[in-house]
Amino acid sequence: MFEQQLLVFKEVAETQNITLAAKKLHMSQPSISLQIQNLENQYNARFFDRTNKGVSLTRAGKVFYDSVQAILNILDDTQQQVSALDEDKRGVICLGATLTIGEYILPHILAYIYQKRPDIDIKVKIANTVSIDQDVLERKLHIGLIEGPEPDHKDFVLHKFWQDELVVVVPYFHPWASRNSITLAELSHERLITREVGSGTRKVMEIALEERGLDPSQLNITMELGSTQAIKQVVYAGLGVTIISALTVARECDQRIFKALRIQDSPVYRPLNILTLSQTAQTKDERYFINLLQDHKLLSDIMSKDYCSMNDKAKDKDTKVG
């Protein structure tokens, strides 16, 4: 009951609106108000200033909010540790990944884990960097795999596990396809297709261009799209060029569909990072997953072998035997 009151308080404090909090918690407004009133009576303090526009934390409410955050975090960690003691229970890892990692790196890793550790279930959310950062901060996800600049929050812990290069990608029939590199000055005259604002790829590109003396606003950006696959389709149609991860076009470059050009002024690299919270205890399965990512030799081996195809062949064999 007390934990429920704390969850109600936290939701009201963060939404600053009792109606919205009620919707998110699937509770009635009177029930929400009663829970808050009971807490205030219990501590003999007023936690919220109420107006027609909503509610806001009082000084006492701000102090109580910090304590509530800490208590709920401890309860969540305790639940994770107790669950990990149940040897008969399948391990579950809830992680988030940005689009490039989720589409082009994670499938290899998941296929490897499926083969080596079938006792682990993995639930994955694929979203842009801003969304994954927020979910890790709110403890909806325990592990985030992100690209782009380091998120600015004191509770985040970041560890690099891979490095990616951003390249200029053109269709193979483009006049630049006979080249291996391009200058930023030349790039500013082409129609550019980019990812949406909030994407790690977009942010890294803008920072890199600014560091090299080119204002991103000078680029002729004609489309902003929410997925790498959509960008590739548009570039393939000859509607522009793009700056994206070399990982995402490796296969198409081998098939002579695209040509990837390095930025001549200086290559643009970005780290791919593991994002966790400093206050969150990890289960043994989460530690296994993180240790796997940090084993660069093993990860390189996983990336070079097609475990997805190996698993498909194993399934076919089992089907034929059965």
Rank of each mutant, 00 (worst) to 15 (best):
residue 3 E to L: 15
residue 9 F to Q: 10
residue 16 Q to H: 12
residue 22 A to T: 09
residue 25 L to N: 08
residue 27 M to S: 09
residue 28 S to N: 13
residue 33 S to V: 07
residue 37 Q to V: 00
residue 42 Q to R: 13
residue 42 Q to G: 10
residue 44 N to T: 14
residue 49 D to M: 09
residue 52 N to G: 07
residue 52 N to T: 13
residue 52 N to D: 04
residue 53 K to C: 02
residue 54 G to W: 13
residue 55 V to Q: 09
residue 57 L to Q: 08
residue 57 L to Y: 11
residue 59 R to Q: 14
residue 59 R to H: 12
residue 59 R to E: 15
residue 60 A to D: 14
residue 61 G to T: 12
residue 64 F to C: 04
residue 66 D to Q: 11
residue 66 D to A: 08
residue 68 V to G: 05
residue 72 L to N: 14
residue 76 D to H: 14
residue 78 T to F: 02
residue 78 T to E: 02
residue 80 Q to D: 08
residue 82 V to E: 04
residue 83 S to W: 07
residue 87 E to G: 05
residue 91 G to S: 15
residue 94 C to M: 07
residue 95 L to P: 00
residue 96 G to H: 08
residue 96 G to L: 06
residue 97 A to T: 13
residue 98 T to C: 03
residue 101 I to M: 00
residue 104 Y to P: 02
residue 104 Y to N: 13
residue 113 I to F: 01
residue 114 Y to P: 02
residue 116 K to P: 00
residue 120 I to A: 12
residue 123 K to L: 08
residue 125 K to Y: 07
residue 127 A to D: 14
residue 128 N to D: 09
residue 130 V to F: 02
residue 131 S to F: 00
residue 132 I to L: 04
residue 133 D to K: 11
residue 133 D to M: 09
residue 140 K to H: 13
residue 140 K to Q: 15
residue 141 L to H: 07
residue 144 G to I: 12
residue 144 G to Y: 10
residue 150 E to T: 08
residue 154 K to A: 10
residue 155 D to I: 05
residue 159 H to V: 14
residue 159 H to C: 10
residue 162 W to F: 15
residue 163 Q to R: 10
residue 168 V to T: 12
residue 170 V to P: 05
residue 171 P to C: 12
residue 172 Y to W: 09
residue 173 F to R: 11
residue 173 F to T: 13
residue 174 H to L: 15
residue 175 P to C: 08
residue 179 R to H: 07
residue 180 N to M: 11
residue 180 N to S: 13
residue 181 S to C: 06
residue 181 S to V: 10
residue 184 L to E: 00
residue 185 A to T: 14
residue 186 E to M: 03
residue 198 G to I: 12
residue 198 G to E: 04
residue 203 K to P: 03
residue 205 M to S: 01
residue 205 M to R: 04
residue 205 M to H: 01
residue 208 A to R: 09
residue 208 A to S: 14
residue 209 L to P: 04
residue 209 L to H: 02
residue 215 D to L: 05
residue 216 P to C: 04
residue 217 S to E: 14
residue 219 L to V: 12
residue 226 G to S: 15
residue 227 S to A: 10
residue 227 S to Y: 06
residue 228 T to E: 12
residue 228 T to G: 15
residue 230 A to N: 15
residue 232 K to F: 05
residue 233 Q to V: 08
residue 234 V to W: 01
residue 236 Y to S: 14
residue 237 A to R: 14
residue 244 I to F: 01
residue 245 S to W: 02
residue 249 V to S: 06
residue 249 V to R: 03
residue 255 Q to V: 08
residue 255 Q to C: 07
residue 261 L to D: 09
residue 265 D to L: 02
residue 266 S to Y: 06
residue 266 S to W: 05
residue 267 P to K: 10
residue 268 V to Q: 04
residue 271 P to L: 00
residue 272 L to P: 01
residue 273 N to C: 02
residue 273 N to P: 05
residue 276 T to D: 03
residue 276 T to Q: 07
residue 277 L to C: 03
residue 281 A to I: 09
residue 287 R to Q: 06
residue 291 N to S: 13
residue 294 Q to L: 13
residue 294 Q to V: 03
residue 295 D to G: 01
residue 297 K to Q: 10
residue 298 L to P: 00
residue 311 N to F: 00
residue 312 D to N: 09
residue 314 A to G: 01
residue 315 K to W: 10
residue 318 D to G: 11
residue 319 T to S: 03
residue 319 T to V: 11
residue 322 G to I: 00
